[in-house]
Amino acid sequence: MKYTVDKSVFELNKDIKFGILIGENIENSETTFADEERLRQAENKMREEIKPENLRSLHNVELYRDVMIKSGINPNKYPPSVEAMFKRIIKGGQLPVINALVDLCNAVSIENGISLGGHDLRDIHQDLEVRYSRKGDIFLPFGAEEYEDVPEGELVFTSGNVVQTLKWVWRQSELGKLTNESSNVFFQLVGFEYNEDSTLKKSMDEIENLVIKRFNGKVKRFLVDMNNDSIEF
């Protein structure tokens, strides 16, 4: 299977980088006390360090919003999913416990202020691509049973003509959601730098470590950017 980022995406920001991890033979489970404790600690630290009025100034959030604006998406109406999640936390809310993999991915996202999506590969049957939507693209909203048509010209993450994430990093589909039975998972992280101190590398390291040590799985790891816009896995 291929994963490709259309060259037009890098015209929005030449530094966009997509960290891809393929988790194999994952043994997901109900959330343990230790799993939830990590999530709550991440939430508490975010509340202590970030004020609501400074949320949009967070490095990655600011850049996600800029890319969305340049692509024609209004981030005030369709905020990056992590911005909405962080806003909920900073205002005193807690994320619900779902399962160990989802909760720990959320913890890593909060700890590093980065967009991190996990997609169950059993629901993905065609090549993956980040591109502008085309006529015939469809989307199954979370919790829905009927597909919706996707307007042409919107930045999306898609498998064939089935959109996995609508309006770039706004909302994931019902297809690919992570459950206790998820064992082969496609992780997509979005950053703008990749070095030892970058949130992207740290987050990829954390997810790789969790897949191997917490979930007894294996990992294949890739970096996609303007100089390497396609991979096969």
Rank of each mutant, 00 (worst) to 15 (best):
E208K: 10
P75D: 12
R47G: 10
V97N: 12
K218H: 10
G136D: 01
Y132T: 04
I212M: 08
V5E: 01
R47P: 03
N25E: 12
A42K: 03
P79Y: 03
L121W: 02
D205W: 03
N76Y: 14
L166Y: 09
V163D: 00
L39A: 09
E53K: 05
E43V: 02
S173N: 05
I90H: 04
V156F: 04
K218M: 09
E181W: 12
K2F: 05
D127V: 02
E146P: 07
E152T: 01
R88V: 14
K91T: 11
E62T: 09
R88W: 15
N161L: 12
L63E: 14
I98H: 07
H119D: 13
G217F: 03
T165Q: 15
N76P: 01
N227R: 12
Y3T: 15
S133G: 05
K77E: 13
P52R: 02
Y64P: 00
S133H: 06
A84S: 13
Y147R: 07
A107G: 08
F187L: 07
L166I: 13
G113C: 11
S198W: 00
E208P: 00
D6S: 02
M226A: 13
F186P: 08
Q164H: 11
F157K: 10
T32H: 03
I90V: 08
L140M: 12
A107Y: 02
R47N: 03
L155M: 00
V156P: 04
S230R: 11
N195C: 06
V97Y: 04
L200M: 07
G117C: 15
E154I: 10
N184C: 07
L63R: 11
D137M: 11
E62H: 15
N112Y: 01
L140H: 07
E208A: 11
T158M: 13
V67D: 06
N54F: 14
E83H: 02
Y147H: 06
S133L: 06
S203A: 05
I73G: 00
V156R: 01
E111V: 02
Y132W: 04
D137G: 07
L21K: 03
N180K: 12
F157C: 10
K17Q: 07
V102A: 06
R171G: 15
L55K: 00
I110S: 08
D127I: 00
E152A: 06
R131Y: 05
D127K: 00
G92F: 01
I138P: 00
G92H: 00
N25L: 07
V156D: 04
E146K: 15
N180M: 09
E37L: 09
D149N: 15
N13D: 15
E11C: 10
N76V: 13
I90T: 05
N25I: 07
L210R: 08
S29R: 13
S115T: 11
N13W: 06
L58I: 10
D15G: 08
